[in-house]
Design a protein around this nucleic acid. Structure first.
Lengths: 234, 234
DNA sequence: AAGTGGTCTAGACCACTGT
DNA sequence: CAGTGGTCTAGACCACTTT
C-alpha cells in the first residue's frame, strides 16, 4: 500500500527543497505543471501545495505562482532536544543510570499510544534517570516498538541515550509532544529527589519512524529547577 | 463575495459546537449527510471536516464517523500569540475578566526583565483571567513598557486581549519563553479554581519590539486540564 | 449489506496578475 | 492575452467498522 498521491507530491517537493535544488524564493512548479509532470489530477497537486503552504514551507500568490518560503520561522517554538546533548552544551556533566531495561506486556495505554494491534502486546521498556552535575534532572520512562528497534534490549543505555540510539537505527519522521504540570507518582518523585506535592514538568512524546510509531516516552523533570525554553525572531 | 463554501461548512459546525448544541464526544453529521443538508459536494464537506480535524476541533475515524474532540485537547500557546484566537479556533467561547489595570512602580524583578534604567521605574500592569467555555484557563499577569505602548491603560482589555493590542501598536520582533511547573501563589490558584498544592504550568514570556523590550508576562495555566502541544513533521 | 472516511479524477468557473 | 491559484462539482474506488 503506497503512500497517498498527495503525500508523494509533497515528498517530491520537500526532497528538492531539502537537497538545496530549490532555494528559498525559487519558483515551484505550478499546479498544471505538476499535473503534467507527475500524472496526478489538479486537485491532488492543489492539496499537496496547499498543505505545504499551511505548514510554512511554501508561499503562494494567486495569479503569480508558488515559491519556496524563507526559513525564518524555522525553529520549533518548543525546543525539546536530546537531554544529554543539552546538558553538555551547557558545559555540565551528564550521566545516566539505567533502572530497568526489559521486555514487558504493553498496558492498554501504552498499546494505544504506539497503535499496536492486540497481538503485538510485547514492547521494550526502559527506565532511566539522567543526572546533570550529579543531580537528577529527568526520569525517562520509555516504551519502544520492537518492530522498529529489535535490538533495543542490547543497547548500553548508560553510554548511548535512547534518543541517540533510536535516531540512529530509525530515521525520525515525526514528533508529537504534550507538556503538562503534574504531581508525579511517588516512585518517580523519589528518583527526582522531590518531596511529596512538589510539581514536575511532564513531557509526553511520541515519535514516528518509517510510517510507524517508534516510541512513547514520559519525561519527568523537577518543576523547581527545570525550564523549557523557546522563542523566535521575526 | 460570500465566504468560500467549505468555510461556511466549517462555521456551520463551529457554531453548533460553540453554542453547546454539539458537546465533546457527540457525533457530527457524516460527509454524506452534510452533502444533503447543506447542498454542497462531498469534496467540499470533506475539506471542511478535514481542516477542523487538523486544528483539533474534531476527531475522525474511518468507517465509524466524525466526533467533537475532547475539551482539553489544548493548543499551542508557545506557537500562537493570542489565547483568545486559539480558543476560538477550537470552536470554544472565550471571554476575559480584567482584574486590574494600572500604573505601578516596577519591582527589581520586573525592571530587570524589561531592561529598564533606574529612572523609568513606572510600568503598566494588567491582571486578566481568560475563560474557555466559562472555565478559567489562564491567569495573565503582564507588565508593559510605557515607552512602547503609552496608551495601554486606555485599552478595553476585555474586548481586545493585551497581545492583540500590543501586536497592533508595536510590531513583534522577538519572543522568549520559559516553561515551568509550579505551585502557584494562592491568589493565582483561586483565580484558576485550583486547590492548594495543585500544580500549574507557568509560561514566562518576554517580547521585543523596535529593539526594546515591550512586555513581560507570567501566564499561569491549570496543570490538570491544560496541555501544551507541539511537534513537527519531517 | 450499509455506512463511513480516505483518496482521486476530469472537468469547470472565477478573480487575479503579468505581458 | 495566457497563466496562476482558489474553489467547486459529481462522480468513482477503496478499506474499514458496524449491524
Amino acid at each position: 500500500m503506497p503512500l497517498p498521491l498527495y503525500q508523494q507530491v509533497k515528498d517530491h517537493v520537500l526532497t528538492r527543497i531539502r537537497s538545496g535544488e530549490w532555494l528559498p524564493g525559487a519558483r515551484v512548479p505550478s499546479e498544471h505543471e505538476l499535473v503534467r509532470e507527475l500524472n496526478v489530477s489538479r486537485m491532488t497537486a492543489n492539496r499537496a501545495l496547499r498543505e505545504l503552504m499551511r505548514t510554512g514551507v511554501l508561499s503562494r500568490v494567486a495569479g503569480v505562482g508558488t515559491f519556496v518560503a524563507d526559513f525564518k520561522a524555522a525553529g520549533h517554538p518548543l525546543q525539546i532536544r536530546n537531554i544529554a546533548e543539552e546538558i553538555r552544551s551547557r558545559g555540565h556533566t551528564h550521566h545516566a543510570q539505567v533502572i530497568s531495561l526489559q521486555p514487558i506486556v504493553a498496558t492498554r495505554e501504552v498499546s494505544e499510544r504506539l497503535s499496536l494491534s492486540r497481538d503485538e502486546v510485547q514492547v521494550f521498556h526502559s527506565l532511566l534517570v539522567h543526572f546533570e552535575q550529579g543531580r537528577p534532572v529527568q526520569v525517562e520512562d520509555r516504551y519502544v516498538n520492537p518492530t522498529v528497534a529489535p535490538d533495543y534490549l542490547q543497547v548500553p543505555l548508560d553510554r548511548v541515550t535512547p534518543n541517540e540510539y533510536l535516531m540512529e537505527v530509525a530515521p525520525l519522521q515525526r514528533v508529537e509532544h504534550t507538556v503538562r504540570a503534574v504531581i508525579p507518582p511517588a516512585t518517580i518523585a523519589s528518583r527526582l529527589e522531590l518531596s511529596a506535592s512538589e510539581p514536575a514538568l511532564l513531557i509526553e512524546r511520541v515519535t514516528w519512524s518509517r510510517g510507524a510509531r517508534a516510541s512513547y516516552a514520559l519525561l519527568y523533570h523537577p518543576g523547581s529547577s527545570f525550564e523549557l525554553r523557546g522563542g523566535f525572531d521575526a
